[in-house]
């Protein structure tokens, strides 16, 4: 199977005045389409920075990041946004729903940004899959944490992404809700055949993916 994500000698350096802080150093790995992968490591190890680089949210200081055959390093902000909209789905620890939109409208956002028409039935179908078909007209503040994360899941799959990035998807949820959300995540992912990249502290969750990358001090150690 072809690689959907490929990183070669990726480094990320932050400059503060004359000081340089190397957050990531010589990262090399690739992910096959349809695979599941976890990035684990202690706080401050560079996990989130790595996720940002992989998803085209940030640019590497050196090295190359290729997503679905597109080299991200030389793209401008709008071109990166277009790549994310076409190929990438996101799930965040703190859900990140737009508070002014209903659950249904939140699910529709990625498709609307793409200018697609007649998307309501697809969004409703996704809400149904996460068990929230009846809550589509509710605003985020009217939903529990677990429900918000399920809306977030539906949104992540709405644009039929090639690759899904999840940053601590159950970090803000209790154990019981976490379990339900995890199950939904993997079921939907399997059904859609999407590549899944997880960033987590939770080794149990990480163990459910096919592959784990351990990172420490900005370097892949395993």
């Amino acid at each position: 199977m072809a690689n959907i994500l490929q990183l070669e000698h990726v480094a990320k350096v932050y400059r503060s005045g004359n000081r340089e802080l190397k957050v990531l150093d010589d990262i090399n790995f690739s992910v096959e389409a349809g695979a599941t992968l976890s990035i684990v490591g202690p706080s401050g190890s560079g996990k989130t920075t790595l996720l940002g680089l992989c998803a085209g949210l940030d640019r590497a200081t050196s090295g190359s990041v290729e997503l679905n055959g597109i080299r991200l390093n030389n793209l401008n902000e709008d071109q990166l946004a277009d790549v994310r909209n076409r190929y990438v789905g996101f799930i965040f620890q703190n859900f990140q729903l737009l508070p002014t939109l209903t659950a249904l409208e939140n699910v529709m956002v990625p498709l609307e940004l793409r200018g697609e028409k007649n998307i309501k039935s697809r969004a409703l179908d996704l809400l149904d899959k996460v068990g929230l078909a009846e809550r589509g007209h509710h605003y985020p503040t009217q939903l529990s944490g677990g429900e918000q994360q399920r809306v977030s899941l539906a949104r992540a799959f709405s644009n039929q992404p090639q690759i899904l990035f999840a940053d601590e998807p159950t970090g803000n949820l209790d154990a019981e809700t976490s379990e339900k959300v995890e199950k939904l995540l993997f079921d939907l992912n399997k059904e859609a055949g999407t590549t899944l990249i997880l960033v987590t502290h939770n080794l149990e969750l990480a163990a459910k993916t096919q592959r784990i990358i351990r990172i420490k001090g900005g370097k892949v150690i395993d």
Binding site: D78, R84, N85, V88, L113, R114
Partner: peptide, 15 residues
């Protein structure tokens, strides 16, 4: 927060 989220989901500067 809203704008960054929209940017993340693929909104252009123009949008």
């Amino acid at each position: 927060q809203e704008s960054i989220l929209l940017r993340t989901l693929g909104a252009s500067r123009r949008q």
